[in-house]
């Protein structure tokens, strides 16, 4: 059976995929259904949901269309989550591979740096970074990646340490391959599976961190974000709780979807491993 079919047989995976597909559809169709500025005023302020079918989820304090904001927010959440996780995985894999393969002083240096980054809570790190550099999408991505690469680095290093003792690495040396080619072309691809297994957790954490930054007003001011929407709704929490609840639910569902899909991947590969 092909891996995709096997993956889709895991119930968690199916649930996760459905949620993520819906999210992706929202993100991709945002400018199709809601062209123009989602932050523009679309109707009367504080219209409750399900009252006016041209504004199905109502409007916020300034009269902005909540559904449009939700769609555009999905785009930000996904983009930041995926970009930050990808950056963290790439940085972590490279640093872990270099440390594990080079050993000695380089290993010591890189791993002490990893320790240093790991001791600072990643949210504080992101907070400090954004407040110093200034909020924009790229900075937010970098700030989140800065606190998330240490896990992949450790896993990659441990994996590389065991792989580099194997005969095929000795074979590559005997062939006369350059050490960097051995590290990144021979060893790294074989060290990747356990590193990639971390990706769902990292994506989920990145989406939450982005929301938290936006909630504190440190998100990109030119983009709608779910965290920013929750913060907006906070001022009218008693009279219009839906303004915070709707993006909150979206956030919870997204993180759940990413997590479930990740579990599905782990389950699929675990089954394959136990079969082989």
């Amino acid at each position: 059976m092909n891996p995709l079919r096997r993956f889709l047989r895991v119930p968690e995976a199916r649930a996760g995929v459905v949620i993520l597909a819906a999210l992706l559809a929202m993100a991709l169709s945002a400018s199709l259904f809601f062209p123009g500025d989602p932050q523009a005023i679309a109707g009367p302020a504080l219209l409750p949901p399900f009252k006016d079918w041209s504004l199905p989820l109502g409007t916020d304090r300034l009269g902005r269309d909540v559904l449009a904001e939700l769609f555009h927010g999905a785009r930000t959440s996904l983009a930041v989550g995926i970009a930050a996780a990808a950056a963290a995985l790439v940085i972590g894999a490279i640093i872990g591979t270099l440390a594990g393969f080079a050993g000695g002083l380089i290993d010591e240096l890189l791993m002490r740096t990893t320790d240093a980054f790991q001791t600072v809570p990643s949210f504080l790190l992101a907070l400090a970074f954004v407040s110093v550099v200034g909020p924009s999408l790229g900075v937010v991505v970098a700030a989140i990646a800065l606190g998330a690469w240490t896990g992949p680095a450790r896993v990659a290093r441990a994996e590389v340490l065991s792989i580099r003792e194997r005969d095929f690495v000795a074979g590559a040396r005997v062939t006369g391959m350059h050490p960097l080619e051995i590290a990144f072309r021979e060893i790294l691809p074989n060290a990747l599976p356990p590193v990639l297994a971390l990706s769902s957790v990292i994506v989920a954490a990145a989406i939450l961190t982005e929301a938290a930054l936006s909630f504190l007003g440190l998100g990109d001011p030119n983009r709608v974000t779910w965290g920013g929407m929750i913060a907006e709704g906070r001022a009218v929490l008693r009279t219009a709780p839906f303004l915070s609840i709707i993006p909150g639910i979206a956030l919870v569902l997204t993180v759940l979807g990413v997590y479930l899909a990740g579990e599905g991947v782990v389950e699929t590969t675990a089954v394959r491993r136990s079969l082989s």
Binding site: R166, D167, F168, G171, A172, R173, V174, T175, G176, H178
Partner: peptide
């Protein structure tokens, strides 16, 4: 690395010896 062209090795376990 360049001299390695002249001095080669064949390992015991041919499966382990290849990526």
């Amino acid at each position: 690395r360049s001299r390695r062209a002249r001095l080669q090795m064949v390992f015991q376990d041919p499966l382990a010896a290849f990526n």
